[in-house]
Simulated assay, not measured.
Amino acid sequence: MKKVLVKFSALVLFAGTVLVSCSDDDNNNNTQQQQTIAQIASGNPNFSTLVAALNRTGLTNTLNGSGQFTVFAPTNDAFQTFFNSLGQNQNVNTVDINVLRNTLLNHVIATEIPSSAIPASTYVNTLSPISTANNAPTISMFVQKSGSTVTLNGGVDSKGAVVTTADLDASNGVIHVVNRVIQIPTIVDHVIDNPSFDTLQAVVTSTSGAFGDQSAVLTALNGITAAAPATLFAPNNQAFTDATTGTGFAVGATAAQVTKVLQYHVTTAGNVRSNQLQNNQSIPTITSPVQNLTAILGGGNVDIRDSANNLARVFQADIQASNGVIHGVNRVLRPQL
């Protein structure tokens, strides 16, 4: 009987040990938490410069907290290339802190976007504000996807980047590793980066041929500053085809007339976003003498009426740049030539 009791006690002890061990394993599994974006970056030596930049600018807590973010994370080599472009002796500790902070925010989207959800092309809003004003608009990013390749703001041939490793999942979003620091785009940069505006780019950069020398217009666009921003109504490629072929109004236009057409798409009335436009609002352009456009609102659409009473539909509103905003339109606006 004593032997039976001893064996029974040993069996109970063994069973209890197993149950406790299993319970501990379950507790460990339940309490193990997924890392945040900031924690993943801190644990990867390829992101040491990114971590230092986040710490210096006070953004670590943002990417370590609640919410859902998409972070396009430059590697150390990408940051070094960026610092080299700024001049000698520039590094994460010496670059202007405001430039560094706004540049970092230009890599962050306030929602989680896995690579599988990225369409062929789209614009997204970053967290980088155009000014220090409350509720200031934020910089737009142009995202393209071809196969599994994701390109941002035109890629390395422009001022953008390419995703090299996608979908590092975090508890508060996702990280996509990129091979360059994504610089904050100007109006001209956004035109260059979007293939839908290739013809506009070709016309503005023309120095001879069918469109003549338009270098003065390009100089004017490049001279637009954040302190005195402008708004560009940008015709897409099909709009230029319609205007310059067949019975299009710009067929046979002289260089001077092309200049006036281009100027008629720019207003220095400020950074005029679509929600600031009012129905029948007059919009002065930079033609000389000044010619006006008219905003026509209705049915949830924004149209721009030109001097010939033609309406151009805004198909892509509020492409935000550092020095102004672009609204894509489906017709070349016709001034009085």
Rank of each mutant, 00 (worst) to 15 (best):
D193S: 15
I118E: 09
F211V: 02
L333W: 14
T165R: 09
Q291N: 07
N323C: 10
M141N: 10
V261M: 08
T287F: 13
D96K: 11
I286D: 02
T245P: 11
F83M: 03
Y123S: 08
Q281N: 07
P229H: 02
T294V: 15
L63W: 06
A15C: 12
T94V: 11
L13S: 12
I118N: 09
P289G: 11
G299M: 07
P119I: 04
T247Q: 13
V162T: 15
V266Q: 03
P289E: 11
D169M: 13
Q291K: 08
S307I: 13
A170L: 07
V174C: 03
S115K: 03
G300N: 08
V290C: 00
A226Y: 00
F8P: 00
N292H: 13
N106A: 12
S121G: 06
G223W: 07
A220L: 13
V95L: 11
I113M: 14
N323H: 09
S158H: 14
N271L: 14
L100M: 09
M141K: 03
A255C: 00
V18L: 15
A136W: 02
S128T: 04
K260M: 08
A15H: 00
I192N: 12
R180A: 15
T60F: 05
A78C: 05
L5T: 05
A120D: 05
T70R: 09
A15N: 05
L100Q: 11
T49C: 07
A312G: 10
A256S: 14
L152Y: 05
I40M: 08
S146P: 04
T285I: 10
S196P: 00
V266Y: 05
I40H: 05
A250I: 11
N237K: 13
K2G: 01
S48G: 11
V12L: 15
L152A: 02
I224W: 04
A161S: 11
K3C: 03
T151I: 14
G65C: 08
V290L: 01
Q316P: 03
N179K: 07
L200M: 13
Q320N: 15
A234H: 09
V162Q: 12
S66N: 14
I224S: 01
N55C: 01
S66L: 06
A230M: 14
V258M: 14
N134D: 13
S146M: 10
A227L: 11
I37T: 00
I37Q: 02
A230R: 08
K159E: 03
V4Q: 13
S131L: 06
D25Y: 08
A239V: 10
